[in-house]
């Protein structure tokens, strides 16, 4: 089997491997940074000094800050809706172009899953807005 054949058969593995690599790297670096931040904050407290605001912000990561505020949560869900809707549209168009092929069902499945996710995200945005009032 040549490299070309191998690539043609397994090109799709690029995405899960990349995702796993980034996830693993993010987990390791986040763990290491949290330990360093806490250690530094402890040193500040031991010396009776006020830790810098940026350091405290690092301790509660940006993601947590966004997730914990109602506005941030709504923006997150709105963005999820946009992403899933775009993916559903993209895979829907892909399905339309290859609908005569044997593998067209794969595009349709992904498009339907993405559409369901988009509808779910939209539902969460709308219900959270109603709950905040």
């Amino acid at each position: 089997m040549s490299f070309t054949d191998l690539f043609v058969s397994f090109w799709w593995l690029i995405f899960p491997v990349f995702g796993m690599g980034m996830g693993f790297w993010g987990m390791i670096s986040s763990e290491r940074r949290s330990a360093r931040v806490l250690d530094l904050i402890k040193s500040y407290v031991d010396q009776g000094k006020e830790p810098p605001a940026e350091l405290l912000k690092l301790a509660t990561s940006d993601e947590e800050l966004v997730v914990n505020s109602p506005t941030g949560r709504r923006q997150n869900n709105a963005w999820s809706f946009v992403v899933f809707a775009a993916l559903a549209a993209g895979f829907g168009v892909g399905y339309y172009f290859v609908r005569a092929e044997d593998y067209a069902f794969a595009f349709l499945i992904v498009a339907v899953v993405m559409a369901v996710m988009a509808v779910g995200a939209l539902f969460i945005v709308l219900t959270s807005r109603a709950n905040d009032k």
Binding site: V37, L40, S43, Y44, K49, P51, P52, L55, L58
Partner: peptide, 10 residues
Amino acid sequence: AILRDARTQL
């Protein structure tokens, strides 16, 4: 950079 600055400040 934030961590380095904080350590330098400390």
